[in-house]
Simulated scan of single mutants.
Amino acid sequence: MNKARLEAFTDAIIAIVLTLLVLDLPRPQTPSVRALFAEWQSIYVYMVDCKF
């Protein structure tokens, strides 16, 4: 397997994992910034987890 194929495979795996992580984030009750800010802990954990 050459380097380009390995990089593409790794990128695909990372994209799938990040998609699954996003689906686990809680949805705010109302569509407002205040409701989104109430979920800041979950969003913060997601952002820290995705930093690699």
Rank of each mutant, 00 (worst) to 15 (best):
M1S: 14
M1L: 14
N2G: 15
A4T: 06
A4S: 05
L6T: 10
L6I: 15
L6V: 13
E7W: 01
A8E: 15
F9C: 05
T10H: 14
D11G: 07
A12V: 08
A12C: 10
A12E: 07
A12Y: 09
I13C: 10
I14G: 02
A15N: 10
I16K: 11
V17G: 02
T19L: 09
T19F: 12
L21A: 09
V22L: 13
D24A: 15
D24K: 14
L25P: 00
L25H: 04
P26W: 01
P26N: 01
P26A: 02
P26G: 00
P26H: 02
R27S: 03
R27P: 02
R27I: 06
P28N: 01
Q29L: 09
Q29G: 05
Q29A: 14
Q29E: 13
P31T: 00
P31M: 04
S32P: 09
S32G: 04
S32A: 03
V33R: 09
V33W: 08
R34H: 01
R34I: 07
R34N: 09
A35R: 02
A38K: 06
W40C: 08
W40V: 12
Q41D: 06
Q41S: 06
Q41M: 03
Q41C: 04
I43N: 05
Y44G: 08
V45Y: 06
V45I: 09
V45C: 05
Y46A: 14
Y46T: 08
Y46P: 05
Y46C: 11
Y46M: 15
Y46W: 13
C50Q: 13
K51R: 13
K51L: 12
K51P: 00
F52S: 03
F52P: 12
